[in-house]
């Protein structure tokens, strides 16, 4: 079994191998096994449906991190009719872990920013595994402000384990870069669509994560911290990551329920890495539909909705005392 197959894909791979075997056997020995093969194919399809409809958070996390998953540039190439990558933050450098540029889908111009992971180890080192430095966030902001100037909608594709934790990142103000982006994105006067296409790693994701619509692909996660880090802190044991992945409620489904994510974009059965084109089509459709909806509002309505969207996030109980009777208490539950 090739190493890039995930543990839970095992029964599927075994079935597929068996089908292949039978086909070969049928040819070699000239025996009719068509019925048998059909039965196995049906079974394989059924198992696939079963496996993928009941994935646990930990398994989804594995899919989100899958090395063969389409990257930001893969999606851009598949959905855009034209795209020109633009480089640099004009202050320090060009971050290869967070890319951006201008392009179009049909007649719709767009500014796109997104984390970029590598395809191979070498490529990943070049891309710093999709972990951006401050100059990455500042480049994104420069391009987004440019989008505002030319009245172009913004698409942000999130796929990062997190913002890079290193000495230079600290020296150049990682915290400030992320904070500034959130503040500015809250008030940019053009539509902003956010899509998590793989890993939504904490502040590193949120640094390009404020917008009118937040969507997640089906097998992605978005989390306050990595389950490994969470486990190491809370249980002093990184191997508890599986438990942490469940506790953190980090899947698209969980976050839709919590009201943080607006929409889940389906992936082809087996995951985006199994069918790039089909996955990109689904992405494109979601982008265009949502863009149309956002563009139906006036700018002030759009900004108000964007503000309210974030303003209402948080769960707590509000007690408000009524002066007339000390024993009477009103409870307002914010959800």
């Amino acid at each position: 079994m090739p190493k890039d197959h995930l543990e839970f894909e095992k029964p599927l791979i075994e079935l597929e191998d068996k089908i292949k075997e039978l086909k070969q056997f049928m040819q070699e020995k000239d025996i009719d096994l068509t019925d048998e093969i059909e039965r196995l194919k049906e079974k394989s399809e059924r198992v696939k449906q079963e496996v993928y409809s009941e994935l646990e958070p930990w398994q989804i996390l594995k899919l989100a991190r899958h090395a063969e998953r389409p990257t930001t540039l893969d999606y851009i190439n598949l959905i855009c009719d034209d795209f020109i990558e633009l480089h640099g933050d004009r202050n320090y450098g060009d971050d290869r872990a967070l890319i951006g540029g201008i392009g179009k889908i049909g007649d719709q111009p767009l500014t796109i920013v997104g984390h970029q992971k590598g395809k191979s180890t070498k490529d990943n080192i070049n891309r710093n595994f999709g972990m951006a430095h401050p100059e990455g966030y500042r480049k994104a902001l420069r391009l987004m402000k440019q989008a505002e100037k030319f009245n172009r909608p913004i698409l942000a594709l999130i796929n990062t384990p997190g913002a890079y934790p290193g000495i230079e990142a600290e020296e150049r103000g990682q915290a400030e870069a992320i904070a500034k982006n959130m503040m500015e994105m809250a008030r940019l006067k053009v539509p902003i669509i956010i899509i998590v296409t793989g890993e939504g790693g904490s502040g590193g994701a949120l640094g390009i994560g404020v917008g009118d619509k937040i969507m997640m692909l089906e097998y992605t996660y978005y989390s306050v911290c990595s389950p490994e880090a969470c486990a190491a802190i809370l249980w002093k044991d990184a191997s508890e990551a599986k438990t942490a992945a469940e506790a953190l409620k980090l899947t698209a489904k969980d976050l839709l329920e919590l009201g943080i994510v607006d929409e889940i974009i389906n992936e082809p059965l087996g995951g985006a890495h199994k069918a790039f084109k089909e996955s990109a089509e689904l992405l494109k459709e979601a982008i265009l539909t949502n863009l149309q909806e956002i563009q139906s509002f006036s700018i002030s309505e759009m900004l108000e909705k964007r503000y309210d969207k974030f303003r209402q996030i948080g769960e707590y109980i509000e007690h408000s005392r009524i002066e007339v009777n000390d024993e009477q208490q009103d409870e307002v539950v914010n959800e």
């Binding site: 904070a179 959130m182 502040g203 949120l206 404020v210 976050l255 996030i313 948080g314």
Partner: peptide
Amino acid sequence: GMLSLMQMAK
């Protein structure tokens, strides 16, 4: 979880 993270944006 994410309810905390989003307070940064809020």
